[in-house]
Design a protein around this nucleic acid. Structure first.
Length: 561
DNA sequence: CGGCTTTGACCGGCGC
DNA sequence: GCGCCGGTCAAAGCCG
């Protein structure tokens, strides 16, 4: 307990849990966007899973939602026809003669009370008939609508099936090529996690022991009971369908694991030894170049978009340059570590919140999830590193952000960087709110991310002629980052493993990203923040991996000194 | 005394 | 309708 409050458990000692929900609660709110999946024609053959031939889709071609009602209606009308035809009322089951002959009542020349009674009865029956017909029409329309809906669901299901099969094929191909199955982010977590992790489990399922497949795996083990496999697969597919709109799962570890070494920055060219991304699909957010036409839902989604940072830290929270006030702490299901809720107090009514929780599996990992936009200027310390996660967030929100051109460019960077550094980031729109997770627990993740960004910088910067001066931002960014170091050191923050000894003052990229995430939306000019990100990253790369610092790095070092 | 943390209560969404 | 769960509120308490 840092200050005040009733004595209780130290949140720092037990804080956390990965932001991905656990299996029991991580899927209930998931929305699946299958619109981007390829639509299969009804005549297409089912594509069996390469992992298990027993996977057969259940295709429902058509369904009559009101067979009973319709029969009843027909029968009812049939009766009515008999009943009314004598009075000139023509009624068909599928069509109603609206030119009803209502002159039957005119024959009541006797004008006695019996006739009036009969007329009243006839009119009543007629009204009932009209109502029934209307109801029938309504049901028919509803039936047609549901048919269309069912067809869409079937198409989407088939598309997902193809997509899944493609993923499995991709996995097998890559495995055959590399001989090593990737450990994805949080790959050490066997059963926990939400959709992302679940998807990862699918991703890595091929290497799982058969005994592990009872709950999570089993897709490949076709030697087991086909029926059981089918059931499990269907269940898994349902979970995916219900929870996954899309995942861009990037595995950085594979390049290193394949090489058996940790890449060390500048020696490697950005486009070298980095496999292509496991880009399952494009983000579901369609690109909109017209900010004025943003839908309220989209804007709301932007506000709700979250950036999660996984970083090793012994402190209760990572220092991100912002001021936070804790306003709550809860025990999250599936994680023995409590989740702490913080609110930004730098602005009068700043809506930015963050959640801090320790990873259940590895409590040295602190997961910080940021949400919201700062409505106040940020200190340089926060601004400098805010952009680290800007790229990730921009990728997450690609096409949904107001500034179209800038975001397109930022997406270029984000996609390039992240695609070049698989496993550094996991993008998930499946959660209740779209979330991009930056995993900085692996040293090479950070270094590869830096390297990837660096390699793309020239191309990227050329497309941003209107951006603010990169060296300017760069110098300030690194200067500000250097200020973090002492603070973090005093808080027991660990230095990044990739930082060389002679650069002991180089800030932890994890911390930097943490602070960046906190301030991710602080800058209304998102592109400027993105430039700051690029330049900062480049600076870090140079300062971390090269004694021959580039000018910005040297400048930074000078600033630090 | 102001500012902060702690923590139980409360609220709303969601699934059954 | 009920229970679960995540998120938030606010009173209580602590510290400088």
């Amino acid at each position: 307990m840092a200050k005040g409050g009733r004595p209780t458990i130290d949140p720092g000692s037990v804080l956390n849990s990965y932001t991905e929900p656990n299996n029991t609660s991580g899927f209930k709110n998931d929305i699946m966007d299958i619109s981007t999946y390829p639509i299969r024609n009804s005549g297409d053959e089912d594509v069996p899973s390469p992992a298990c031939s027993t996977w057969k889709p259940v295709i429902v071609n058509e369904m009559d939602f009101f067979p009973t009602d319709r029969n009843c209606s027909k029968e009812s009308h049939r009766v009515n026809v008999k009943k009314e035809s004598a009075q000139g009322v023509m009624i068909g089951c599928l069509g109603l003669n609206t030119g009803l002959n209502l002159t039957a009542n005119t024959s009541s020349e006797k004008s006695n009370e019996d006739d009036r009674t009969n007329n009243t009865s006839n009119k009543k029956s007629f009204n009932e008939l009209i109502a029934l017909q209307a109801e029938l029409d309504r049901m028919s329309m509803e039936n047609e609508r549901l048919k269309v809906l069912l067809k869409q669901v079937n198409d989407n299901y088939n598309s997902l099936q193809i997509h899944f099969a493609t993923l499995m094929q991709h996995q097998q191909t890559r495995k055959a090529k590399t001989g090593i199955v990737d450990e994805v982010i949080n790959g050490d977590k066997s059963n926990g996690g939400g959709l992302t992790r679940q998807f990862m489990d699918l991703h890595r399922v091929e290497k799982d022991e058969p005994s592990h497949t009872s709950s999570e795996g089993g897709l490949r083990d076709c030697s087991r009971s086909p029926m059981k496999d089918k059931v499990e697969l269907e269940y898994k597919k349902q979970k995916i369908c219900s929870s996954s709109s899309e995942i861009i799962q990037l595995d950085l570890d594979k390049s290193d694991s394949r090489n058996g070494t940790t890449t060390t920055g500048r020696e490697d060219s950005p486009d070298q030894a980095i496999p292509g991304p496991v880009l399952n699909k494009a983000p579901r957010f369609t690109t909109s170049r017209d900010a004025d036409h943003q839908h309220p839902e989209t804007l709301s989604m932007i506000r709700k978009a979250r950036v999660s940072v996984r970083a090793r830290s012994d402190g209760t929270t990572i220092n991100d340059g912002c001021q936070w006030r804790k306003y709550g702490q809860k025990m999250a299901k599936g994680n023995p570590c409590p989740r702490a809720y913080y609110r930004c107090t730098m602005g009068a009514s700043c809506p930015v919140r963050k959640q801090v929780q320790r990873c259940a599996e590895d409590r040295s990992i602190l997961i910080t999830t940021y949400e919201g936009n700062h409505n106040h200027p940020l200190p340089p310390a926060a601004m400098a590193t805010a952009s680290y996660t800007s790229a990730a967030a921009s990728m997450l929100l690609s096409g949904s952000m107001p500034s179209a051109d800038a975001l397109m460019n930022s997406n270029i960077l984000a996609r390039t960087a992240l695609s070049s550094s698989p496993s550094f980031a996991t993008l998930s729109a499946s959660a209740p709110f779209p979330t991009v997770t930056l995993d900085l627990t692996q040293p090479h993740n950070a270094s590869q991310f830096q390297r990837a960004v660096q390699g793309q910088f020239n191309m990227f910067s050329s497309s941003l002629p209107h951006f603010m001066s990169a060296p300017q931002v760069f110098g300030q960014a690194l200067q500000n980052q250097s200020k973090y170091v002492g603070l973090h050191s005093s808080q027991g923050m660990e230095l990044p493993p990739f930082a060389s000894s002679n650069q002991i003052h180089t800030p932890s990229l994890s911390d930097a990203i943490g602070s960046a995430t906190a301030a991710i939306t602080a800058d209304p000019n998102f592109t400027a923040a993105l430039v700051a990100a690029i330049t900062s990253i480049i600076g870090n790369v140079h300062s971390n991996h090269s004694g021959n610092s580039t000018q910005p790095t040297a400048r930074n070092n000078n600033d630090k000194n």
